[in-house]
Design a protein around this nucleic acid. Structure first.
Lengths: 147, 147
DNA sequence: TAAAACCTGTGAGCAACTCACAGGTCAAAG
DNA sequence: CTTTGACCTGTGAGTTGCTCACAGGTTTTA
């Protein structure tokens, strides 16, 4: 298979295939006639696997690790379970953060209902934002930035 | 004020101040003696404003736009409200997506409970992932990538 | 035979910072 | 008075996972 063929077969952008190849997730051979990349069904399997794993939240380094383990005939599954647990926890953290944000946003929006649109006067820029109460980080461990 | 002073006053990294200055969100003058940046209370106000706006989900280009409007003595508030609505909708979309993802992940995790750890056999890499059911995009408008 | 569609590698762009580097400046301590 | 240490300067690179642009080579189609 050539780049576009495998890309179409997996439903991804050809540039993604090239990128994954650069990143050593795929290891095509070469057509000696024209130097084109040649992908086989194993590559297609890896590509599809990688895409599924991405949808599940695995990073490319993690995917490469899994693929390498599989190449060495070790079962990657225990590692998959492990990384997966971590990802799940992180997703849940992200959800909580976004819900916090939404809460702050809707509260701000409600507060803005009955605030007039002021013209900046040298003291304030837009009081909608300036007079908005800080989220007041209740239990964060960090000081000035999170994550 | 010098960089570190205004940074401390706003609770941000000095590099962030330098970055915002590069990005023209802040326009300090120069101390002719030593070529140091000199920030005044107006810059501090802008910096604090920018940070609050960031917490509310505004992007830097949006913030710059707001600040520019304020500089021109137009009330940026209507624009703020408008952009804000869009951001809120997007945050809610992100939350929904992440919740979907979490659902899929917990389902996958449960399904994996009683699947054996297979050693890759040339046909599968890790059936935990390969045999995981696709998210089945129900109502998406895009084809192969979202957003 | 010429245009269209594909291939090649490399480098840049996205967002919003953060960090590293190399060298200049300044305040307090010795 | 000098030395140390903390600060300042600008610029460039790194983060993540692609995506796009470019310039040139190849293959297929009309």
């Amino acid at each position: 298979m050539k780049v576009k063929e495998i890309a179409d077969a997996a439903g991804v952008n050809p540039d993604t295939v090239r990128f994954y190849t650069r990143e050593k997730l795929l290891q095509p051979t070469r057509n000696p006639d024209n130097n084109y990349q040649q992908y086989d069904t194993e590559d297609l399997r890896r590509l599809r696997f990688a895409r599924k794993a991405r949808q599940l939240g695995f990073s490319l380094p993690e995917i490469r690790q899994i693929l390498d383990q599989a190449d060495d005939h070790h079962s990657p599954c225990p590692m998959v379970r492990d990384v997966f647990q971590h990802r799940l926890a992180e997703v849940e953290r992200e959800i909580r953060e976004l819900q916090q944000l939404r809460k702050r946003m809707t509260a701000a929006l409600a507060a803005w209902q009955d605030m007039p649109d002021g013209t900046p006067d040298g003291h304030t820029i837009c009081r909608l934002i300036e007079h908005w109460d800080d989220p007041a980080p209740c239990c964060g461990a960090s000081e000035q930035n999170e994550e």
